[in-house]
Every structure is written in C-alpha cells, then in structure tokens.
Amino acid sequence: MSVSVVSSTKPGGAGVLRVRRTLRAVLPALSLILILLAIWHLNARAISYFGLNLMLNLAVPVALATVGQMFVMASNDLDLSIGTFVGFIGCITATVLHDSPVLGIAIFAGCIVVYALLGALIYLRNLPSIVVTLGMFFVWQGLAILVLPKPGGHAPDWLKALMSLKTPYVPFPVMAAVVIGVVAYVGLMRTSYGAVLRGAGGNAVAVERAGWSMLKVKMILFGLAGFCGVLAGMALIGLTTSADANLGNGYTLLSIAGAILGGGEFTGGRVSPIGSVIGALTLTLAGSLLNFMHISPDWQVAAQGGILIVVLAARVLINRAGSAA
C-alpha cells in the first residue's frame, strides 16, 4: 500500500501524470464550454435549437476536414492541401455528382486513391509531407478551377435535404458532430488495427519490428484523410447549395488549428478524434461569439489564432505544473 502512496506523491509520479493527462484531455471541452457560456451570457436565446443550428451549420464540414487532418497528423505528417481538396470535391459535387452520380462517385474514389498514393510516395521517397502537399494544394485548386471556372453549379437535392435535416430535439449539426466524433473514435482508438496506426506514429521502428508494413499504414492514414476530405466537400456544398473553386481554401488552416486545439500533437502519434471535433466546433463558435460581442468581423481570424495560442499556452502550463510538482 505504501508503495502506491509514495509513487503518487513523488515528482512526476504516475498520479501526477494521470492528473496532467486528464487535464489535457478536458482542455478542448473546457474551451468549448467557455465559449458556449460566453455566448449564453451575451445572448441567451442563441443557445437554442434554432440558434445552435444556425451557429454550428458550417461546423460539419470543418469537423470532417479536421478529422481528416488528424489522420495525417497521426503518422507525424501534415496535409496542407486539404483546403483546396475540399474545394475541388465541392466543385465536383455541384457539377458532376449532380449530373451523373456514378461518375461523381468514381471521381471521389479516384481522389481517395490519389491520397493513398501520396502517402506511399511520401513514405517511399522519405519526402517532407509539407512540400508534397503544398504542391497538391496547387493541383487541387487548379483542377477545381478547371471544373468550375465561375462560381455556380447545384448541389444534388438529396444532399441539400440531408444537410438541412430537422432532427428532433437536438440540432442536426450537433448530431452530425457527435456521429463524426464517435465513428472516428471507434475507428482509430478502439479497433485493433487503429492501435497499429497510432503506434506507427509513436514508435515506427517498434511497429515495423513487430512485422507491420509502414507503407500500408501511411497509405491507409492518407486514404482516410482523403475520405474525410470528400465528405467535408460534399457537406459544404450541401450547405451552400452551389460551389466556388475557392470555397475550401481556408480549411487547411482551420483543420490544422482544430486538430491541435483538440489535443493533437505534431509528433508521437498523439491525436484525439473527439478532441478534434470539439476543436472544430470551438473555432466555428468563436466567430459567432465575436458577433455577439459586437466585435467587427475583422478580428474573427485573430480570435482563432488567439484561441490557439491560449490553449497551447495552457497546455504548456499544465505540463510544467506537472513536472514541477
């Protein structure tokens, strides 16, 4: 008995570490609650079925893109192209998918394959993912403009209907976010192969020594990112009903910020699916909060940066408190 008491009071002991980890895990949720409280304080009516529906509408595609980014980050890479990819998928959704669904779905499948191949290329040639995906940023944007030189197109009706679904009691965006978070959580955190995928980010040598193929791991993670990007693009068009080649450009930064806010780290395979979804919601709500505070939309982006900095600073403080205790 005395052993456990000693070890939990020792500096850096298991007890302190557990507390530190719990604190870090609740940090994303805490920031979301803080923002919700602030909005409620400023305008209580906003926290209602209708208000949440309105404020969180755009959170669905953001959450999907963030989860996609999280998959790439799980293997210590970064996808700078996800923004224009979402834009490109949006253009396809509003044109090809609307006119000939089969061809549209075939293109989406092809895109996911391209993502998986990028993962393979990055692994086999040992390339910096930042530069490769930077090139892809241009490629997707170029393709988007080729598909849809001028804003326009029409979202398929079923997609519009889906995105404006009136669900009972709980607003659709909230339900969608929960579904996205739970599916990603179960897939990455609860399945047996998900453990291998995450382990590859934590100690690639050990995973390879145990007989797993790192090539396959990279391809699957990038492929999953592509899949999430496809869903994000479709969801976005379901909301906006028509497309624009530059619609998704901001999603690159939003998705990275969301995944980091949600507790993700760039190295070590430390990612959190549910945290990522919460991070995406937080960033989306930050805009509404500023509106309620009558702060000009000029400062919207600053608020996103500011939240990011504050959360990261809090994380450093938690780590430091843990090691100094």
Binding site: S192, A195, V196, R198, G199, G201, G202, N203, V205, A206, V207, R209, A210, G211, W212, G268, G269, R270
Partner: peptide, 18 residues
C-alpha cells in the same frame, strides 16, 4: 525500449500479436 509511448499497455501487447 520498443514500446509505443502513445499507446496503452494492452495496445502495445496488440502490436506484437497480429
């Protein structure tokens, strides 16, 4: 050490056993 630090004890056992 050839454990993955970001995984749980059980998950690390899983890595060794397909």
């Amino acid at each position: 050490l050839s454990l993955c630090p970001n995984l749980t004890v059980a998950e690390n056992a899983r890595i060794l056993h397909p």
